Computed example of a mutant assay.
Amino acid sequence: MNNQKFYYTIYGLTLASDYEFSQFVKLEEEINEPDIEIVYGGIPDFIEPQIKEGYYKGIKEDEMWFYNSAGLFYIHDRKTINFIEYNKGTIDDAAVFLPGLCLAVLLWYRKMLMIHGACLRINDKTIIVAGNSGAGKSTLTTELIKRGALLMADDVTGIILENGQYISYPAFPAQKLCEDQVEKNGLDTTSLKQVRYDLNKFEVSREDDFYDKPAKVDALFRVEVQDVPSLTKSEITGSEKLKIITDCIFINWLFNDTFKFEPDDMLRCIGLSNQISVHKICRNKDQNTLNEILDYIQSNV
């Protein structure tokens, strides 16, 4: 790594980074006081002894460290992510985890709701297509873009409460697609960057289909794969509406006695559920219901 700094805007914040992200929206001018920083190195000495004792992560208030097969990461002070390559990983391998998991944790500390789903702008409305891995979010997102939608975030949507409204801020103009989706859409894989931790996925630029302004969230569509005889789709009301939103939090698997879902986090989720419509779509993986789902989403925006 050299000493060059790269500057970006992401989720409505300025970012200074030691690592260059080709997919992020670049800022040409140098930022003296960025909102957030990504720093190569600077891992504190207290972490390595804990790893030797068998720990793979540590969490305190507004502070978290963890490691995996690619890198070692330290998130702290609601501002900074320190990272290095680790085990058999390279710097590029480790950097793959910065835009997703690491930023999601940091922005959660900054009181931003991080939803596991794509954010799209359709007919002057802002929607989230949410669901667990394998639910079909990328396929739906790609097809909605073909129908004229604009991308705001691919896999992690950031929402913050401002002046009584829940606002989604754009992430970056790129989308991760599986190889079969790349081939289906006639894209040449030789010109695409592979996602290093999952070589079956490719990074596709969406610069021409990107909405780069903050926007009030209007609806969330939760897509699930279940053993159902046929496609079901409905608007949700009552307590299940709130449950769907909390289930869609990108980092909800981290919540425990230390990394807590605090009362003010619940209040934000309640506030969001009161302001948006929530829909639940259950599909059978063996049935081709893509167009029916797309039509339902567009008719409910």
Rank of each mutant, 00 (worst) to 15 (best):
M1Y: 06
K5Y: 04
T9W: 02
T9A: 10
T9V: 10
T9G: 09
S17L: 01
F21R: 12
N32K: 15
D35F: 03
D45N: 09
E48Y: 11
P49W: 00
E61V: 08
F66S: 08
A70N: 08
D77V: 04
I84R: 09
F97V: 07
L101N: 10
L103I: 13
L106E: 06
Y109E: 08
R110I: 04
G117K: 01
C119P: 05
T126F: 01
V129L: 02
N132P: 07
T142Q: 11
T142M: 04
L144R: 03
R147A: 08
L150F: 10
D154V: 01
D155R: 03
T157W: 01
G158C: 02
I160T: 14
N163C: 07
N163H: 12
I167C: 05
A174I: 04
T190N: 03
R196H: 09
R206C: 12
R206S: 14
A215Y: 02
D218F: 01
F221K: 05
V225G: 09
Q226R: 10
D227T: 13
V228C: 06
P229W: 00
P229I: 00
S230P: 12
S230H: 12
K233V: 14
T237H: 15
K243Y: 11
T246P: 05
D247W: 09
N252S: 13
K260V: 14
E262T: 15
D264C: 07
G271I: 00
N274D: 15
Q275H: 14
Q275L: 02
S277V: 07
E292T: 14
D295T: 12
